[in-house]
C-alpha cells in the first residue's frame, strides 16, 4: 500500500537532542529554573561557559565535587555575573577562541537589583555575551524576599498579605532595549521551541544579548509542582508576560499572539496572589491593557524606523551582523 508516512510525526515539540544538564541536580521538584537551564543548554551546545552568581542555580548545580552541567561553570559574587562573563570573553578573545559561547545565568535579584550596574556596564560596552535572567519574581533562594521583579499585588515574606507589593514590576527588557544592544528577547519555559530558537539566534549575533526567561517557582509562588509549565503558559496566554524580541533597540516582533485568557486563570493557580480582591484584579486588567497598548505601539514605531546606523555605539557593522 503506497502511503507516504514520512511526514507523520505526533510530536508537539522539536528540540535538539543533546543534554548538558544531568539528573541528580538539587533543584526543588517542579523547578522552572532547572527546566530553563536544560532548554537553554540544548540550544547553546557543549561549546559554552556559564557564569552563575548567587542565586538558586548556585545551589542547584550541586555540592563540590559535583556539578550538574557538563560545561565549565564559574560561580561568582552576587553583583558580578555580567562583568565576570565580560572578563571570560576578553580572555577567550585574547586566546583567539571566538567560537565559545559565554553565558551569564542570573536570577531576577542578581539582574534587576544587585547585578544591575555591572550588567548595564557590560551591555553598554556591547560585550559579546549572552545574559540570561531567569525570573521567578523574588529572592527565592534566600527565602522569598521581594525584588524589583516582583509583580504588583504579590505576596513575599517582605511584602506580607496585609501590605502586598504596591509597585509594578520593573520593565527590565525595556531598560536593556534602551542600551541599544543587538538583541533582547523574552522567553518562557512553556514555549520551548520559541526559547530555543531565540538562544540559537543570540548565538549568531555578535555583541551583547539579553534573554529574559519567565520561570515558575512552586516554593515561592506557592503553586503546585505539577503546574509549573501550565502557569508559565498562562503567564503568556493571559498577556502578563508577552513573548517578544527586539533587534538593535528598534525592531520589535511579538512572537506569540496571546489568547488573552482572563488573568484570573493565571492568578488562581498561585498562592502568592490568593489574598487579592476583585479590585486588585481589575487594576491588573487595566494595567495589562495599557502595557499591551504600549507594546503594540512600539511594534508599529519599530516598523517605521530604520536600524541604527553603523559606527554608532551599540550598533554593529552590517557585515558583522551576519558574520558569526
Amino acid at each position: 500500500m503506497a502511503i507516504d508516512t514520512t511526514s507523520y510525526d505526533p510530536r508537539n515539540l522539536h528540540l535538539p537532542d543533546g543534554e548538558i544538564l544531568s539528573s541528580g541536580h538539587l533543584a526543588c521538584p517542579g523547578c522552572g529554573a532547572a527546566l530553563g537551564m536544560r532548554l537553554a543548554l540544548k540550544a547553546l551546545g557543549p561549546n559554552t561557559m556559564v557564569v552563575i552568581p548567587a542565586c538558586c542555580w548556585a545551589v542547584i548545580n550541586g555540592p563540590y565535587p559535583f556539578q550538574a552541567l557538563s560545561v565549565p561553570v564559574l560561580q561568582v559574587a552576587f553583583e558580578t555575573a555580567a562583568i565576570s562573563a565580560s572578563g571570560i570573553r576578553a580572555a577567550l578573545d585574547a586566546q583567539g577562541q571566538k567560537d565559545i559561547n559565554v553565558v551569564a545565568w542570573a536570577g531576577d535579584g542578581g539582574t534587576f537589583d544587585i547585578g544591575f550596574q555591572s550588567l548595564s556596564g557590560a551591555v553598554e560596552r556591547n560585550d559579546d555575551i549572552i545574559y540570561f535572567c531567569y525570573d521567578n519574581e523574588a529572592y527565592m533562594n534566600t527565602g522569598i524576599q521581594r525584588s524589583s521583579a516582583t509583580p504588583y499585588g504579590a505576596w513575599t515574606t517582605t511584602t506580607p498579605v496585609e501590605t502586598p507589593k504596591a509597585e509594578p514590576k520593573k520593565n527590565m527588557v525595556e531598560i536593556m532595549v534602551e542600551h541599544r544592544i543587538p538583541y533582547t528577547a523574552t522567553a518562557s519555559i512553556a514555549f520551548p521551541e520559541d526559547f530555543v530558537r531565540k538562544v540559537e539566534k543570540a548565538k549568531g549575533i555578535p555583541g551583547a544579548k539579553f534573554i529574559h526567561l519567565w520561570i515558575s517557582c512552586p516554593a515561592g509562588h506557592k503553586s503546585e509542582e505539577r503546574n509549573s509549565v501550565k502557569i508559565a503558559r498562562l503567564a503568556v496566554e493571559t498577556g502578563v508576560f508577552p513573548l517578544y524580541e527586539v533587534e538593535y533597540g528598534t525592531r520589535y516582533t511579538i512572537n506569540h499572539e496571546p489568547a488573552f485568557t482572563d488573568v484570573n486563570a493565571y492568578l488562581e493557580l498561585q498562592g502568592r496572589f490568593r489574598h487579592l480582591t476583585e479590585e486588585h484584579v481589575e487594576a491588573m486588567r487595566r494595567n495589562l491593557r495599557w502595557e499591551w497598548e504600549r507594546l503594540r505601539a512600539k511594534v508599529e514605531m519599530g516598523r517605521k524606523l530604520s536600524l541604527p546606523p553603523t559606527g554608532v555605539r551599540g550598533a554593529v557593522d552590517e557585515g558583522e551582523r551576519t558574520s558569526r
Binding site: 544531568s22 541528580g24 541536580h25 521538584p29 550541586g62 563540590y64 565535587p65 559535583f66 556539578q67
Partner: peptide, 17 residues
C-alpha cells in the same frame, strides 16, 4: 583551579518523592 566532577547522577534525587 577548583575541580568539579559532573557525575552528579550519583545523587539519587528519586528518594525525595
Amino acid at each position: 583551579t577548583s575541580y568539579s566532577d559532573n557525575a552528579i547522577t550519583a545523587i539519587k534525587t528519586g528518594t525525595w518523592k
